[in-house]
Design a protein around this nucleic acid. Structure first.
Length: 188
DNA sequence: CGTATTTGACCCGCGC
DNA sequence: GCGCGGGTCAAATACG
């Protein structure tokens, strides 16, 4: 079950959720993957609101975090799990917005339309599971993503994207971008 | 044999 | 200044 974004926008299925902090539910067409997710950025720590029970109730929740909109995910300045200056969702290198979401999935490798090269793996304190680091392999594109399993419910995978792609997903060449305006995530 | 992944070392910011 | 935690590098290794 591949899961990808086929949109020129770096976060195609995110930007259509209303800018910041909005929570949107959607229902992917495929029953075999259930999303029950949300995004959290810098202040992510304990997200007990996870309803791990709705396994078949495909839904996705997202909280958009963008420097221009500011951000808040509920857990403000509660901790410093992730370093965040000024409470702004901007990493230290100013690479760009960071976006994260949880996906209920057995696999951690999801085909989101981009080609990723793994460059690191690390065990982090806040999570007993390993965190994997990927970089977009397209030349000149420095978008990164982290993938780790939910510390509380290992059936979920937390994916964090960082930065903005300076190119379109190779996948988009097969589809008209317009068609994605309303299609959100596509499952196949 | 070229490319992708693995994995320990290294680096850097931050708090004490 | 030092140690810790997290992120990245890069040599070695695996894989096609």
């Amino acid at each position: 079950m591949d899961f990808y974004f086929g949109n020129p926008h770096p976060y195609p299925n995110i930007h259509q959720y209303h800018a910041h902090n909005s929570v949107v539910s959607m229902t992917p067409s495929s029953p075999e993957i259930a999303l029950s997710d949300y995004l959290m950025l810098d202040d992510y720590v304990d997200h007990q609101d996870s309803r791990s029970s709705q396994s078949t109730e495909s839904s996705e929740k997202a909280t958009f975090c963008d420097p221009t909109h500011g951000f808040s995910t509920g857990a403000t300045s509660k901790n410093n799990n992730m370093k965040c200056k000024n409470g702004i969702n901007e990493n230290k290198r100013g690479v760009g917005p960071r976006i994260a979401f949880r996906t209920k999935s057995e696999l951690e490798i999801m085909d989101d339309g981009y080609k990723w090269r793994k460059y690191g793996k690390k065990s982090v304190k806040s999570n007993p599971n390993l965190r994997n680091y990927y970089k977009c392999s397209s030349g000149g594109c420095s978008v990164k993503k982290r993938v780790e399993r939910d510390r509380d419910d290992s059936s979920y995978v937390i994916t964090t994207y960082e930065g903005v792609h300076n190119h379109e997903s190779p996948f988009t060449t097969y589809y008209s971008p317009i068609s994605f305006v309303h299609s959100d995530t596509t499952f196949k």
